[in-house]
């Protein structure tokens, strides 16, 4: 596969190779941004999981501060430590048992992990492609200086 690609790349003119590299760089940029976003989403789910861990039956009746805005809090008491309401997306929320919520977030986090791994592989392959293009480009440029250009 790599050899086949090399053959194709060496047929290209330096300007075309630069274009190819530019496009690959753009793709790589996009992929790494997506990777970051996925990482952030996963971190969010994980923090939900650890928050769920805090919510034990013994926390019942404990005083909490409920944020009404980011700067205004009112005191409240934990009346229910068994059920939580989970955001499942597109404006829908579901009341779940703690164990169900934990399953939900664990599954979310795991599915993101799968995506992250696939994405990681894609990024690595892209990086290899960029490397190859760079090498061919360098070869071309050096060869071009000596031999006075290709066909």
């Amino acid at each position: 596969m790599a050899a086949e690609q090399q053959v194709q790349l060496t047929d290209l003119e330096p300007i075309q190779l630069q274009e190819v590299k530019k496009q690959l760089d753009q793709e790589l940029d996009h992929l790494t941004t997506s990777y970051q976003q996925l990482k952030q989403a996963q971190a969010k789910f994980r923090s939900c999981l650890s928050d769920l861990g805090e919510l034990t039956p013994s926390a019942k009746g404990k005083e909490v501060l409920v944020p009404l805005t980011s700067s205004l809090y009112v005191p409240g008491r934990l009346a229910d430590t068994e059920m939580v309401v989970v955001d499942i997306g597109t404006g829908y929320y579901v009341r779940k048992k703690r164990s169900e919520a934990r399953e939900h977030y664990t599954a979310k986090s795991a599915s993101i992990q799968g995506n992250l791994e696939t994405l990681q592989n894609t990024i690595e392959r892209k990086q290899e492609n960029v490397q190859t293009v760079m090498q061919v480009l360098q070869m071309k440029l050096q060869g071009g200086r000596g031999g006075g250009g290709g066909k």
């Binding site: 309401v85 499942i88 997306g89 597109t90 404006g91 829908y92 929320y93 579901v94 009341r95 779940k96 048992k97 169900e100 939900h104």
Partner: peptide
């Protein structure tokens, strides 16, 4: 894909899982 995930979530609901809409 977002709506598909939500629908999948709905199929797993049990009677005690109240659904709220924002």
């Amino acid at each position: 894909s977002e709506n598909e995930v939500v629908l999948k979530e709905f199929t797993l609901l049990k009677p005690h899982n109240t659904v709220y809409k924002l």
